[in-house]
């Protein structure tokens, strides 16, 4: 039975609760039809989502524990694609997210943005009014 599956989460902007998103993605993808290399795709989406949220916690909200992150997950089982949208009302990137496309060796900063771009097929960031809106998309099969 092919269909759109939509899940909405709102979590505190805290490192402590980012595992909730990982868990949700893991359970969701375990029930989605036709996912190639399911464990790998799941891990990559969990890590990309973790990195986006960590960026929001550390940079948008600068550690403010009152911040919230709105997350919309949509799976299109016909197109075999998963889309995620992350919204926050923290500080934005005035010139967009830095494009870290390659790294020569591991470092203490910048690896998160590098990983996001490596692990999913599309990454988009926009400032919409008071909101930062991240969109990531990955083919599942």
């Amino acid at each position: 039975m092919n269909q759109f599956i939509r899940i909405k989460l709102e979590i505190p902007a805290s490192h402590r609760f980012l595992n909730v998103l990982s868990g949700t993605l893991g359970e969701l993808l375990s029930r989605v039809d036709q996912v190639d290399e399911r464990d790998t795709v799941t891990y990559q989406l969990q890590l990309a989502a973790q990195e986006v949220c960590t960026n929001i916690v550390d940079h948008a909200y600068e550690g403010n524990p009152d911040g919230r992150i709105e997350i919309h997950i949509e799976v299109d089982e016909n197109a075999h694609v998963l889309n995620m949208t992350f919204g926050d009302t923290g500080v934005g990137y005035e010139t967009g997210i830095p494009a870290i496309l390659t790294i020569d060796e591991p470092s203490e900063g910048g690896m998160g943005l590098f990983l996001i771009r490596q692990l999913v097929d599309q990454v988009d960031y926009q400032r919409q009014g008071d909101w930062n809106v991240w969109k990531i998309s990955k083919k599942l099969a």
């Binding site: 891990y43 973790q50 960590t54 591991p106 470092s107 900063g109 690896m111």
Partner: peptide
């Protein structure tokens, strides 16, 4: 089971 960039930064440090 899972490691993110914050964890990797600790290893580099």
């Amino acid at each position: 089971a899972f490691m993110d960039s914050a964890a990797m930064a600790v290893l580099v440090s």
